[in-house]
């Protein structure tokens, strides 16, 4: 079909453009470096936990060992990926923002956009081509990080991933693609809607700051359990039941905190991935069915954000906006 061919042509050009762009290359390399660092750090943190466990064991007399139960730290490869996910949340989003911005900025206002629009290119194929191009780049990036982190975790932990762990990781990579594509569309739409291009980039960046860093951080800061290093309730030796009973008296405060958190797309992505990977320990080693039973609302919200951003990008891609010169 002719339209599909045009989408393919645009997508191919998008990929070539991104690969030639030094800023994109720098950021992608940076992200890979961060993933490497975070896995290394996680494995060292785990090793020192093991060392502490052995040190504690050696200090206890055989008598004490009977009364005190020490649990050996268990190694879960997927939990090593916490830092990786956090960097994807933060830096991955920046990369997607830059890609979305560049996808529009390089043509907007220059005569290149006119050359494109005098050809039989519909709005759908224009947006479709850009989306397909971005998808190829983002999927390659996400897959690259996936393969790299599996290799790194296997290498430092000497423990191979099980089939179900690989499946969970695969699912998380898919969520990541959706999360990044949301930022791509959002930033591309801003580049179309805001007349001044550098300002559009800064606006995208400011919104990233608010929704990716600040709002989730507020929720975290306001968490009563985070007020004391090591945990407020742990400090008081409260049981889980006790915690729930006490927190239930402060529903309004907790609701406010939760409302802040759910307004950020990042938090949904985080809840979903942390549960799937078992980083949130209540979901560790649980079946996918069990996890999805609890976390489907987060997946739904993530999808709604993604669909919304695609619709926004499509509606913004009016020829007059694509050609509009930056003042």
């Amino acid at each position: 079909m002719k339209r599909l061919r045009i989408i393919g042509i645009i997508a191919k050009k998008e990929v070539t453009d991104a690969l030639r762009n030094s800023l994109f290359a720098t950021l992608a390399f940076f992200l890979l470096l961060l993933v490497g660092v975070s896995i290394l750090v996680a494995s060292f943190a785990f090793q020192s936990q093991v060392a502490q466990y052995h040190a504690a064991l050696s200090q206890l007399s055989p008598d004490q060992l009977k009364s005190i139960v020490l649990t050996a730290p268990a190694y879960y490869p997927l939990q090593m990926l916490r830092g990786t996910i956090e960097y994807l949340e933060v830096i991955g989003a920046i990369i997607a923002l830059v890609l979305g911005y560049l996808a529009i900025a390089k043509e907007k206002g220059s005569n290149a956009s006119r050359l494109l629009l005098v050809r039989p290119v519909t709005r759908g194929s224009f947006v479709g081509g850009k989306l397909l191009g971005a998808s190829i780049i983002l999927i390659a990036l996400v897959l690259g990080i996936g393969v790299f982190s599996v290799a790194a975790v296997t290498f430092v932990g000497h423990v191979a991933f099980s089939a179900s762990e690989l499946m969970k990781l695969g699912l998380v990579l898919m969520y990541t693609y959706g999360y990044l594509l949301f930022f791509f569309c959002f930033s591309a739409a801003l580049a179309l809607l805001v007349p001044n291009l550098p300002r559009a980039l800064m606006l995208a960046f400011s919104l990233w700051l608010v929704f990716v860093l600040i709002i989730p951080q507020i929720g975290d800061t306001m968490d009563p359990d985070n007020q004391v290093p090591g945990g407020f309730f742990a400090h008081l030796h409260m049981t889980q039941d006790g915690q729930t009973a006490v927190i239930n008296q402060f529903r309004r405060y907790e609701n406010f905190r939760n409302a802040l958190e759910v307004s950020s797309v990042e938090k949904h992505y985080e809840r979903l991935t942390f549960a799937t990977l078992g980083i949130k320990t209540t979901y560790n080693d649980k079946s996918l069915g069990f996890i999805m039973h609890d976390k489907w609302p987060d997946l739904l919200v993530l999808l709604v954000f993604l669909m919304g951003s695609i619709v926004l990008a499509y509606l913004s891609a009016r020829p007059s906006r694509i050609m509009a010169a930056s003042p």
Binding site: S38, G83, E86, E89, Q217, D220, T221, Q227
Partner: peptide, 9 residues
């Protein structure tokens, strides 16, 4: 972890 570093506590 990187995001935990943004918590003042």
């Amino acid at each position: 972890n990187p995001v935990a570093l943004l918590n003042p506590v």
